[in-house]
Design a protein around this nucleic acid. Structure first.
Lengths: 184, 184
DNA sequence: TACGCTGGCTAACAGTGTTAGCCGCCGACG
DNA sequence: CGTCGGCGGCTAACACTGTTAGCCAGCGTA
């Protein structure tokens, strides 16, 4: 039912560097060429023998993030129909939003890296971005509604991560509010 | 009907620095102490005679951004009732979203500065944040729904600014989709 | 007149990303 | 078996961040 992600993780030394960068990002919350090199026991300039620059390294991480997020969302929807049936749409949207929130909050720094700022599309495998966003189309059955739902989910996650809401305890109800609004 | 913003723009040399910082931010899209100083015809270290640091200067700009955005949103809602009347809610939400989008896209860098990353609340005038967010409560008549609507609007703006949507031409319909979803 | 504050300045430092250029190791090939 | 070449490290250095220390000119006031 779900097509696999159009993406293969890099191997060799580049793969090790990307893995180290991911560990650094999730540990420190930020990415530094110096920290990545230290994680590998080498010096920062040596990284440039394998990676074009920080932007290219970040693009690799964006690909990782999109692939994992896409896999999570597709899995959450699988065995649930395609949302054109209005009765099932509410359940699909619920599951999609829950999976989105859970995944994003579990990998805050990676999520931020992948979703804030302009996408380096020229450095990304073609089709990956669309594939990762597909679940919103599947759940809503309409591209406009899908994008709107995505915007809601992204806004919620980013505001929650930034502690923008006064009281984080009541956020569940805010998510529910959006879910019912988009599931009618 | 609308209470004035709990905020007064800084005067004196600090006011000039904040104004210069705003010009730099809106011109270059980013803020640099060097650029702010150059805009004033002085050297970067001299700024520290008036401002505690870059974070404090950014906080001043965040206050400006919140005050202006709040004023815009309150004005868009004024003379429109309070949204508890279901018939008028759709119109209120429409006007609120239109004003939000217009204002944010007109001041992209300022909007980003004020809405991304954690808020430096301890450097902000008390009450300003709540006042700026009030229109969402006014338009929806419910705090949870108000926050959800805000998340949608913020997500849309930020994704639009980052050119995250494939085709920017059809975004009007995506906004409408969210408006109708939240206005039922 | 002299004191001291205001608001500039230069020099310097640590931390970014990045480039240039050097070299040791190791596999392959004559 | 020797030599050659490239892979993958290294140090030094540069430009650019924010920021601190310390100096000094001017000016109002005691």
């Amino acid at each position: 039912m779900t097509a696999p992600a159009p993406w293969r993780p890099p191997g060799g030394r580049v793969g090790e560097i990307v893995a180290a960068a991911r560990r650094v990002l999730e540990r420190d919350g930020e990415l530094t060429m110096h920290a990545v090199a230290a994680e590998l026991g080498i010096r920062a300039p040596s990284l440039y023998k394998h990676v074009a620059g920080k932007a290219a390294l970040e693009a690799e991480l964006v690909a990782v993030a999109l692939a994992e997020m896409g896999a999570t969302l597709h899995a959450a929807l699988d065995a649930g129909g395609d949302g054109r049936d209005v009765d099932r749409r509410a359940a699909l949207v619920d599951r999609l939003l829950a999976a989105y929130r859970r995944h994003a909050l579990a990998h805050p720094a990676l999520y931020r890296l992948a979703t804030s700022g302009p996408l380096p599309r020229h450095l990304l495998p073609p089709g990956l971005e669309d594939w990762a966003g597909e679940p919103f189309l599947r759940a809503t059955g309409d591209p406009h509604r899908g994008r709107a739902l995505w915007a809601f989910a992204h806004g919620m996650v980013v505001l929650e991560l930034d502690r923008r809401f006064p009281d984080p305890a009541v956020l569940d109800r805010t998510w529910d509010e959006g879910a019912t609004a988009f599931a009618r």
